[in-house]
Design a protein around this nucleic acid. Structure first.
Length: 885
DNA sequence: CACAGGCTAATTTTT
DNA sequence: TTAGCCTGTG
């Protein structure tokens, strides 16, 4: 019904789609198509075709930039479906971004024809993680309607935990701890798995306890952070072999996009699903999983078709399949003849990973290039296919990129080449500018010139290392009247108004969602300030109930002053009303009602600021977007995981984005500004990542270069404003790593003749591109980095020392001060009222209340007491807030 | 509760 | 330089 996961019961392997009746025209057409090479295979080059047709066993496709990676992936799926090797629901295909998943779905649709059922298991690691987790939530200690917290919620929760532990959240910032937790979860670690050193490094050595406390809070909130969406399924599958076996039987084919970006948790997750450890006992070999039996006895029809449980039902196209022997599922079995399952080799599903180690640029968020480098060891007998035939760029661009990336060590090694005739394409142009101002102006002028020559702005891009560089271009382009668009700004669901609105909806759908409740309890302003919220919060924690329930308790008493109390009662009643309407009102309508009645819409209507109209517009868009979903819950899930801002404008505009955001895209002309030491490679990568940091920066440069189809312009400046101060800069060492044969030093065309004072550089020499690596420019850059650059870019040492000194001096008094206040009070509450649900107070008891002072209990009603206070008179209070004297 | 002023930190970003 | 956050004041 309205349950978002009702529509994916385990029986989804039987898509309710009509099969063409045997002998029907459709069936004959399908059969005919199988005789000859299907049309979708046409136009693939031999390597691509091999990657598509090697459906069995582990396959690693090393797909260089512009070699048709997505095409291979989608065609491979189409191929599997078209041969009837599996149902759509038996193919697990994972990507990193929703965008990639969407594109893949679309392209498969085109290949296979729209008749194909959607692929339920094509999605991001996280969305598939959720799907698994919803089904088996109870095995992870959650209810299946758990909430997914985004980064913001996560940080707020971490902050609460840090404060509850009595730590100073200045010294131990929630942000950094949330980051640490993410790091741990990227490795698949729970509180007990983290190394002692890590645990000691935070919160006065209490990192582990804090982590555990955080996980505890998540559990009580019935919530997951993003990391949990990977970690819970891993633990769940590992601890429940029967569940794992179900998925083993279910997924016949696994495909992974951008494998070089997988982190350790994702890797564990994949290996769990893709591989069973070698079975040691004969018993298992006799009763193998269906796909193993299929390979051991590839008889037609086969037991595999009639496998007893709904996970393993094979395609129902009986007619077509019996013509082909069931394909053996793994190489180990293939080689060993019948019943080789007892072998040491782990049994792998048909897993196909596609990636490019040279484009691994997400190490900083946990990606392990090592995963791709190790593939052949992990999956013995793997087929490795290299795609090196590039369809995107000119010889010069490929030459420059290849030469640059060759400076990295530990690559799997690919060399891109193009077969396209390469008449007189321009070499990669290297430009120097005096400062970033001139850089932006010159690029703007070049763009105008190109535009005059009939080039589309859409086909040009400026790829920067860091987003602060964008502003310079925006300013310039506005002044010059060049249309531009920024790719990768803030996301739709990250906007304040959207998050607020979502918080309302979340509280309605999930009353235990305290984080959402806290977010909107005083938005719009209701006069419920810190003190009121704290009261509710403390009561909720003390009794282990959701804040909304705590609020309900509190408004029945006189704990609060009349004004906030009335406001809170109003809010509680509103939520009751909305929840009551939830099941009988269409959810978009309900959302409108909520935003209206809560005063949220009015708040923005009364706001005179410039953004207010846009925010109202966004709210409307939110409501509109809801219409596409079956239920409020389905919608909530979509937003937390998937929803992103759509680019509406269709006008011709230059694209401005970071190098990271550019991965996977291509443009006729690409501008790469800011190739200076300290900016690119970025000082921080160097400081924190050492050599591997540098190599990742170099891969980023490689990604930048390979985005260009025909023209590529690299720029560096002699001066750049860093944190508001002008600094002299040195050309990037990457410039020295470009091959002379494919690059030109552009003549200065700029008006102000700007870069003369850049000083002696290799660009003044006759042969600027000497190929020996430690060229003068590089050496100079390195020599200078310690003084000029390090100073300019604030290398950590100086600041770090200072910080440690400050921190230690501060920790004693800072932490002490905070903890007394926050912790003790809370501790008392917990100690007292958790123990006794019915009140431990009796009529006649003498009690003390923080606000009302001493008094005598005159009536007891559950956890609510009526007390005759000596000074304040008779009041209704919560037992949690008084103590016996 | 709202606002002003001080302090801090300052890549990359998906889910 | 600047934006965002926190603290202290009215």
């Amino acid at each position: 019904m309205s349950d978002p996961f009702d529509d994916i019961p385990f029986g989804d392997d039987e898509p309710p789609r009509p099969e063409p009746a045997q002998g029907s025209i459709a069936a004959r057409a399908m059969a005919a198509r199988r005789q000859q090479a299907p049309s979708y295979l046409e136009g693939l080059n031999p390597e691509q075709r091999r990657a598509v047709e090697t459906t069995e066993g582990p396959v690693l496709v090393l797909a260089g930039a512009g070699t048709g990676k997505t095409r291979v992936l989608t065609t491979r799926i189409a191929h599997i479906l078209s041969l009837g090797l599996a149902f759509p629901s038996q193919i697990l295909a994972v990507t990193f971004t929703n965008k990639a998943a969407r594109e893949m779905k679309e392209r498969i649709g085109v290949l296979v024809g729209e008749a194909i059922e959607g692929m339920p298991w094509l999605g991001t690691f996280h969305s598939i993680g959720v799907k698994i987790l919803r089904r088996h939530a109870e095995l992870a200690g959650l209810r299946s309607d758990f909430t997914i917290l985004d980064t913001d919620d996560q940080v707020r929760l971490v902050k609460q935990v840090i404060q509850a532990e009595g730590l100073d959240d200045k010294r131990w910032t929630p942000r950094s701890f949330a980051h640490m937790i993410d790091g741990w979860k990227n490795k698949g670690w729970g509180p007990r798995d983290i190394p002692e050193g890590d645990a000691r490094a935070f919160g006065e050595g209490r990192g582990r306890e804090l982590f555990a406390a955080y996980q505890d809070r998540l559990k009580t909130l019935n919530a997951c952070d993003f990391g949990d969406l990977l970690c819970h399924p891993i633990r769940l599958l590992r601890d429940n072999p029967d569940v794992l076996a179900e998925y083993h039987r279910k997924f016949r084919y696994i495909l992974v996009d951008e494998y070089q970006d997988t982190n350790t948790a994702q890797y564990m997750w994949l290996r769990l699903l893709a591989q069973r450890p070698a079975s040691k006992d004969a018993g298992l070999a006799e009763a193998p999983a269906p796909y193993v039996s299929g390979s051991a006895s590839p008889a037609e029809g086969g037991a595999r078709d009639r496998a007893p449980d709904d996970f393993s039902s094979a395609p129902a196209e009986a007619g077509s399949r019996s013509e082909r022997p069931a394909v053996s599922a793994n190489r180990a079995a293939e080689g060993g003849g019948p019943a080789p399952q007892g072998a040491e080799r782990p049994v792998s599903v048909n897993i196909c990973c596609v990636g490019d180690d040279d484009q691994s640029i997400y190490g900083w968020r946990g990606a392990e290039v090592d995963n791709i480098l190790r593939f052949e060891k992990d999956f013995p007998g793997a087929t490795v296919i290299r795609l090196e035939r590039n369809y995107r760029s000119t010889q010069h661009i490929l030459g420059a990129a290849s030469h640059l990336i060759a400076h990295n060590e530990g690559r799997l090694g690919k060399t891109l080449f193009t077969e396209a005739a390469d008449p007189d394409h321009a070499k990669v142009q290297v430009h120097a500018a005096w400062d970033s101002d001139e850089e932006a102006r010159a690029i703007g002028e070049e763009i105008e010139a190109l535009q005059r020559n009939g080039h589309d702005l859409d086909d040009m891009a400026i790829l920067v290392r860091a987003s602060f560089q964008m502003r310079e271009f925006e300013d310039r382009f506005i002044r010059m009247g060049i249309e531009y668009r920024i790719i990768g700004g803030p996301r739709f669901y990250e906007r304040m108004e959207i998050r607020d609105a979502m918080a309302y909806l979340r509280v309605v759908a999930q009353p235990a969602d305290d984080l959402a409740f806290e977010r909107i309890v005083n938005t719009p302003k209701r006069g419920l300030g810190d003190a009121s919220v704290r009261l509710v919060h403390d009561h909720a924690r003390a009794r282990g109930i959701p804040m909304l329930e705590a609020a309900r308790d509190i408004v029945a008493t006189e704990e609060m002053k009349p004004k906030p109390r009335a406001a809170l009662r109003e809010l509680v009643e509103s939520f009751d009303r909305w929840r009551e309407r939830m099941d009988r009102t269409p959810h978009p309508e309900l959302a409108e009602t909520i935003l209206d009645e809560s005063g949220y819409t009015a708040m923005w209507q009364n706001d005179r600021s410039a953004e207010a109209p846009g925010r109202l517009e966004n709210l409307k868009e939110l409501v509109r977007a809801m219409e596409e979903f079956e239920s409020l819950r389905a919608f909530l899930e979509h937003v937390s995981l998937v929803m992103d801002a759509e680019q509406k404008e269709h006008l011709d505009a230059v694209n401005i984005m970071t190098l990271h955001a550019a991965k996977g895209l291509e443009f006729g002309t690409v501008f790469l500004p800011g190739w200076e030491e300290g900016l690119f490679p970025h000082q921080r990568s160097l400081d924190e990542g050492g050599r591997s940091g540098l190599e990742e920066e170099r891969r980023l440069a490689y990604v930048g270069l390979t985005r260009a189809k025909t023209n590529c312009h690299i720029w560096f400046t002699s001066n750049r404003r860093i944190h508001g101060m002008w600094q002299g800069t040195l050309p990037s060492r990457f410039l020295d790593e470009l091959p002379a044969a494919h690059c030109d030093v552009a003549e200065p065309t700029g008006v102000g003749g700007g870069y003369g004072s850049y000083g002696a550089s290799r660009f003044d020499r006759a042969d600027p591109f000497s190929s020996d690596r430690p060229s003068p420019g590089w050496q100079r850059a390195r020599a200078n980095r310690t003084d000029a650059t390090a100073r300019n870019w604030g290398s950590r040492s100086g600041v770090g020392v200072e910080r440690i000194g400050y921190g230690e001096a501060d920790s004693g008094y800072g932490a002490g001060r905070k903890s007394v206040k926050g912790r003790v009070i809370e501790g008392e509450l917990v100690a007292k009222s958790v123990a006794d649900t019915p009140s431990e107070f009796a009529v006649g008891d003498r009690v003390f209340h923080l606000k009302f002072g001493n008094g005598n209990v005159v009536a007891v009603d559950g956890n609510k007491l009526t007390v005759a206070f000596d000074k304040a008179g008779e009041k209704r209070v919560l037992d949690g807030f008084v103590e016996r004297v």
